[in-house]
Amino acid sequence: MHAVMPDPSPEPSAEPFAGLSRRPSDPQLTLLGGLTAAERLRRWPLPLAGATVAAGFPSPADDYVEGRIDLNEVLIRHPSSTFFLRVSGDSMRDAGILDGDLLVVDRAIEPRAGLVVVAVIEGAFTLKHLHRHRGRWRLEAAHPAYPPLELGDGDDSRIWGVAIHAIHSL
């Protein structure tokens, strides 16, 4: 159903719609503004998307419908502070993070010893384990071949975010 077309032969008038508004009782000629919500619905029924009516028995599962599993909910705790990065290299291999993995980084999480963090080293994002060593923060690779890096006192701004998941496609 569609909008009701006004009668194409209005009374002669300088204003094309002037004649219409004087005769609001005529349903064919009522302008949109003069309609109640119910009237509008009757004339312009909204399609009910996907609302099929089954004529048989109601489904026994109707009471048990749940939302499907949403990976966004599983992987992202704080949407506004979550960023994605792409891993390049194998120095975090022993932490289960491989070359090409999609890294989920949450900046809202406070960096703590034992977490995997993204640090800014020499102008590049670098992936490391954060450790506490003799009262100082230390960045360590999860690979025996790479030496650790001590952080100085004013260096905590170099921790960019905490990695919370590495998504690895097979």
Partner: peptide, 11 residues
């Protein structure tokens, strides 16, 4: 997705 920054795990 194709424009994600790289995080290095090289050293």
């Amino acid at each position: 997705l194709a424009d994600l920054p790289t995080v290095l795990a090289l050293h």
